[in-house]
Every structure is written in C-alpha cells, then in structure tokens.
C-alpha cells in the first residue's frame, strides 16, 4: 500500500487490500469443546484482549466466522458435527487446532477421541499445550495473520 503525502488517496493492489482486510478482522466462531475453551474465552478477557488484533468478535454462527478454533478433544460423536460446521463456514476460512488433544489426541489415546482433528479438517496452525496459555493462542493468531499475509491458503501446514 502506498500513500502519498500530497494526495488524499491510497493506491494498492486488490490482492494486498484483500489480505489486509482478512488479517485485520479474523472473526472466530464461538465453539467451545473442552478445557481449552476456557482458555479461549480468556483471550477476550481484559488481560489478553484480542480486540487489539481485531479478533475479539466471537460469532455464534459458522456462517459469519472466518476462523474455527478447535478448542479441546474431539470425540468420535462430535467429529461429523465439527466437519459440518466447517463446511458451513464461508471461504476463506482457517482452522487453529488448539491444544494437544485437538492436535494429536493428547493423553487420550483411546477409543473415544479422534487422534488429531487434522484427520477431518485442514488445520492451519497447531498450538501445543494442555491447555495452551492464552498467550500461546494469541501467538498462534499472529502466526495465522502472517500466513494469510504471505499468501493465504497457499501454504497451509495441514495434510488435509
């Protein structure tokens, strides 16, 4: 983006403008699964305050959100629902896999828990921790912003 001091307008490319818009207002979906959901709620609390990054508007409907934070273990019963919610989100959309359980099943290597949410969703950023601290989630959000700025879905980390 270029701004000239003499002229009261901005010149930019459409691509860059879109990326700027996408990085500056990531709206996560209100979907709490387990323990991590409490830490996810904490990021809007006064101490962490994600409104600094334009990501405090938690949307209750998947139709209005850009980002799905998979916050907790995904049970076999929940997996199809999660996929349906993801399909309902409009493009472009991103997924943060928050915590050990969502990323790999964590300590629950058993019949009930999905061994990583990336077997049903394409994940953009993984956050380690059980549960990750809100700082870690904010760092993941920053990482996601960098990723979007660098080219959006072109270089996702997930196996899809």
């Amino acid at each position: 983006m270029e701004m000239s001091p003499q002229q009261p307008f901005i010149t930019t490319k459409l691509d860059e403008f879109t990326k700027w818009a996408q990085t500056s207002a990531i709206w996560p979906m209100t979907m709490g699964l387990a323990c991590c959901a409490i830490e996810m709620m904490s990021i809007v609390s006064p101490r962490y305050d994600t409104s600094r990054f334009g990501a405090e508007v938690f949307r209750s409907s998947p139709r209005q959100s850009d980002l799905m934070i998979v916050s907790g273990r995904v049970a076999n019963k929940m997996a199809p629902i999660l996929r349906q919610l993801y399909d309902q989100m409009p493009d472009p959309k991103w997924v943060i896999s928050m915590g050990a359980c969502a990323s790999s099943g964590g300590i629950f290597d058993n019949y009930a828990v999905l061994p990583g949410v990336d077997s049903i969703l394409p994940v953009d950023v993984y956050v380690p921790g059980c549960p990750p601290s809100p700082d870690a989630l904010i760092y993941a959000l920053m990482q996601l912003r960098r990723e979007i700025a660098a080219g959006g879905k072109a270089n996702v980390l997930a196996r899809g």
């Binding site: 076999n76 019963k77 997996a79 290597d109 058993n110 019949y111 009930a112 999905l114 061994p115 990583g116 990336d118 077997s119 049903i120 196996r159």
Partner: peptide, 27 residues
C-alpha cells in the same frame, strides 16, 4: 447415551481394547 448410536461394542468392558475395535476417523 454417550457413544454414537451406531457404535459397536461396549467400551468399558475389560475385553474391549483401549483403542477401540474400529476407529472411524483414522488418519
């Protein structure tokens, strides 16, 4: 009540393996 309706087996029986008989969403 806790497992999906179409689940096979009774998970907390001792002869049911910890990792289940057939995970539906394997990588």
């Amino acid at each position: 009540i806790l497992m999906p309706d179409d689940w096979e087996g009774y998970p907390l029986r001792k002869d049911y393996p910890l990792r289940g008989l057939n995970r539906r969403f394997n990588p």
